[in-house]
Simulated scan of single mutants.
Amino acid sequence: MDADEAEIRKLRWRCRRGMRELDRLLERWLDLEWRQSPTSQREAFLRLLDSEDDRIWRWFLAQEAPVDVEIAALVDQIRTLPH
């Protein structure tokens, strides 16, 4: 297993939030976008994963907006990914 695959496996574990809908949103972005994403977007994803689950969920439901503009853009992107 190469280093990139090992990192993705660790990230997949961090995407497991205990709420199936949230898990799927985060894992879908990881599967579809992580490999080709620029460093700044990857860093925003890591900050997103460091956030509290209930806050992340409110961001995806558009009940709140992240203060971090890069996370806000990422949440918008994740919302529009194909299912």
Rank of each mutant, 00 (worst) to 15 (best):
M1G: 15
D2W: 12
D2E: 13
D2F: 09
D2K: 14
A3P: 00
A3S: 15
D4L: 05
D4A: 15
A6Q: 13
A6H: 12
A6M: 10
A6C: 05
A6Y: 11
A6I: 13
A6K: 15
E7P: 00
E7H: 03
E7N: 03
I8R: 10
R9Y: 07
R9N: 04
R9Q: 14
R9T: 10
L11P: 00
R12M: 04
W13S: 08
W13C: 00
W13L: 14
W13Y: 13
R14T: 09
C15Q: 08
R16M: 12
R16F: 14
R16G: 11
R17D: 01
R17N: 04
R17I: 03
R17F: 04
G18W: 08
M19Y: 14
M19A: 12
R20L: 06
R20D: 04
E21Q: 13
R24A: 03
L25F: 10
L26G: 04
L26V: 01
E27C: 05
E27Q: 04
R28T: 11
R28V: 02
R28P: 00
W29A: 06
W29S: 03
W29F: 02
L30W: 06
L30A: 08
L30M: 03
L30I: 06
L30E: 10
L30P: 00
D31Y: 08
E33S: 09
W34H: 11
W34S: 02
R35T: 12
R35E: 02
Q36R: 13
Q36N: 11
Q36H: 15
P38E: 03
P38H: 08
P38F: 05
T39P: 00
T39R: 15
S40Q: 09
S40L: 02
S40R: 14
Q41T: 15
A44H: 11
A44Y: 12
F45C: 01
F45S: 11
R47P: 00
R47W: 11
L49E: 05
L49T: 09
L49C: 06
L49M: 02
D50S: 14
S51R: 07
S51L: 01
S51T: 15
E52H: 12
D53K: 09
D54T: 12
D54L: 13
R55N: 01
R55W: 02
I56A: 13
W57R: 09
W57I: 08
R58S: 13
W59N: 07
W59S: 11
W59F: 15
W59M: 10
F60R: 11
L61T: 03
A62I: 02
A62G: 01
Q63H: 08
E64F: 07
V67E: 12
E70P: 00
I71D: 06
I71L: 01
A72W: 10
A73T: 13
A73N: 11
L74R: 10
L74S: 10
L74P: 01
L74W: 07
V75I: 15
D76T: 14
D76M: 04
Q77E: 15
I78N: 05
I78E: 02
R79F: 04
R79E: 08
T80L: 06
T80S: 06
T80P: 00
L81T: 07
L81H: 05
P82K: 13
H83R: 15
